[in-house]
């Protein structure tokens, strides 16, 4: 699980645009090391260059660790700034939801010894109050014009990281706020982990490290001309079973959007975890590898329902391959697509699942 956390963190570094939590990473060891990464769309040349830069900076073992951190942070702040800004905004949004003390509790109720320990960890002098110091940091984050300054972004990340590390800090900070601070600090967490992992590699492995994108087919756009109600009705009619009425469907599923006059344009893409798993499994099968293999896939996003089903089906087909992915929130997304050349039994299983979802909807409504 520690390894998966690391992979999830590394995946975060590859999310170069806000609102596109799509990166995934994969490490494989068997004497050599291969690092594969993918998004829901092919990487641009500049993004691929950025990934190489990250690894080059991380592996400059002749430089001091501090220098490597600085170089990495500069590259990340430059390339991921939209996402970083959105994480800062999320911290500030929570601050605004809270009362005037901004969700920072008084340290008076904590044992003195613990307060001293926390102060030392955060570099706060004995005469200063922990609470005031945290509040002044949150206030410093607020003015929006600072978001343009890379140095400010770097500072915000580094401080958020050090605030989020001590486990006892949860006694002082509103839990939701702390979660958001920690997410901001994850960038620094990823940098320290990356440098740490690279330092563990023997030099000969470092020299032969493979870092490679696994591109999915480019996303395409399709138009859905029917409403969801029509789709469920048509599905039932086709099977000669009872059709739900629109009223029934709307009573049962109040969140169903009202039909729009215009058509729905959907972007279809192969999700990154499916692309990676397909590639690695294909490689293993071609090599004729039969011993037990564990694939750990780090993701910067939650797994969607269909990816989960896809993975379950792959696991069933290749019982000697264990696939581990850390997050799952079971969202249903539109535009999900099977990887090209998916074996028939896997695509059938995914299709069966989709049919059973529609049947469940129909049953509830009828």
């Amino acid at each position: 699980s520690k390894h998966l956390v690391l992979l999830d963190l590394l995946a975060l570094l590859l999310v170069t645009e806000a609102k596109s939590d799509v990166a995934a990473t994969m490490l494989r060891t068997n004497g050599s090391m291969k690092f594969f990464y993918s998004k829901n769309r092919p990487f641009t040349d500049s993004e691929n260059k950025y990934v190489r830069t990250l690894f080059n900076y991380a592996s400059e073992t002749n430089r001091s660790v501090a220098d490597r951190y600085t170089n990495l942070m500069a590259a990340i702040v430059d390339k991921c700034q939209k996402k970083i800004k959105s994480r800062i905004s999320k911290v500030l949004r929570r601050v605004r939801e809270l009362s005037t003390d901004r969700g920072i509790h008084s340290e008076d109720r904590l044992p003195l010894e613990l307060v001293e320990k926390l102060k030392a960890k955060l570099g706060i002098g004995p005469e200063q109050s922990l609470k005031n110091r945290l509040i002044s940091w949150l206030d410093y984050l607020s003015p929006a014009q600072r978001l343009k300054d890379p140095e400010f972004l770097r500072y915000a990340i580094v401080t958020a990281h050090s605030i989020g590390i001590p486990s006892d800090i949860n006694l002082l900070i509103d839990q939701k706020l702390l979660r958001r601070i920690r997410k901001l600090g994850d960038y620094m967490g990823a940098v320290t982990q990356l440098v740490g992992e690279v330092d563990l590699l023997p030099p000969q492995v470092l020299q032969t490290l493979v870092i490679q994108e696994v591109p999915p087919p480019p996303p395409d756009r399709i138009v859905i001309e029917k409403t969801s109600v029509e789709i469920v009705e048509q599905w039932a009619r086709n099977r000669h079973i009872e059709e739900p009425t629109e009223t029934n469907l709307r009573i049962q599923f109040p969140s169903l959007p009202q039909p729009l006059s215009q058509q729905n344009t959907i972007t279809r893409s192969v999700h990154c975890e499916c692309t990676l798993i397909t590639k690695i499994v294909d490689d293993l099968v071609q090599q004729g590898t039969s011993p037990l293999v564990t694939l750990e896939v780090g993701v910067s996003k939650s797994l969607c329902n269909l990816c989960e089903v896809f993975m379950g089906s792959v696991k069933k087909r290749y019982p000697n391959i264990t696939i581990m992915v850390s997050t799952h929130h079971g969202k249903n997304v539109s535009g999900w697509r099977l990887p090209p050349l998916t074996p028939l039994e896997i695509s059938r299983e995914v299709e069966d699942h989709i049919n059973s979802c529609i049947e469940e909807i129909r049953c509830k409504a009828t």
Binding site: I224, I231, W235, F253, N264, I354
Partner: peptide, 16 residues
């Protein structure tokens, strides 16, 4: 009548 396509079904599920 042709059955709904997979894309259409995925779309319907995502809305419900």
């Amino acid at each position: 009548e042709v059955p709904p396509t997979l894309d259409e079904m995925i779309f319907a599920i995502s809305q419900i």
